[in-house]
Design a protein around this nucleic acid. Structure first.
Lengths: 132, 132
DNA sequence: TCCCATGGTCCAGTTTTTAGACCTTTGGCA
DNA sequence: TGCCAAAGGTCTAAAAACTGGACCATGGGA
């Protein structure tokens, strides 16, 4: 085939040909990183403080948690409320937008839960057959 | 520290306290990287060759595409078929497992599409208010 | 008085990702 | 006959991202 340009339209953008990035690529850049989903999930039950999330997630570094929270706040998924106390208290909570994201995230989690076994098995098969 | 165990049960794992990682963390580690979702999506319409995907995704490096494909194959999302031709031809395609993943991914994409505007607005609000 | 806790930031060292050269083999073209 | 292109990767060096831990300011408790 001669590199026909008729790449059957995919749901995600084929490329950000235009300066304007496509919605999905744009969103994926945020929630597709290592921590965003975990953070969003940690906030699902309710508001949380910084160190609380740090402990809860467990393997996220302060810097990444800080950065992730900042980005999620920037994109309107969460709110940040700082109380002028000593020691300082800062609480993070989901916005309506953030809560609305729980539906697709839930679908993802459910899928993962349901198919985890199949994945583990595939992995073992692969290692048995190709990797040793 | 007493490490109180009363962290309100979240849908994602709180921590991989046990050697056995929780399903979701495990799955997220794979599809939560920079490229997996894009690759999976590129394969949604049908089988694809390596360089084809490289061009289609556009901003993925050869190495990362190669690595991502290998991992997705390892986890049973896709198959790799090499034809003994010259120049070599290798085709990648979704497995049943991979196809089953399109549902939750679709939910994610739909959400992104629907809420992209809100996100962009939130971002602008944030910049206007806090960043300059 | 000293230390801890809070929410971050900063720094240095490590890991991951990138861009680009390179590999192998055969066909097309001059 | 000689040279380049194409395919699907791999390798390397440099850039970027991430990590762990120190550090900041402040007030309460030991």
């Amino acid at each position: 085939m001669t590199d026909s340009p008729k790449k059957s339209a995919s749901s995600l953008c084929e490329r950000q040909a235009l300066a304007q990035p496509c919605p999905i690529r744009d969103v994926l850049d945020r929630i597709g990183d290592q921590w965003s989903l975990l953070v969003l999930d940690a906030l699902a039950p309710g508001r949380r403080r910084f160190n609380e999330m740090l402990r809860e997630i467990g393997d996220v570094s302060r810097q990444m948690l800080s950065r992730t929270l900042k980005q999620l706040e920037q994109d309107g998924f969460i709110t940040r409320t700082a109380y002028p106390e000593v020691p300082p208290r800062v609480e993070y909570a989901l916005t309506d937008l953030g809560r609305s994201f729980q539906a697709p995230m839930g679908a993802l989690v459910a899928w993962a839960d349901e198919h985890h076994r199949a994945i583990v098995e595939a992995r073992q098969r692969y290692l048995a057959g190709a990797g040793g």
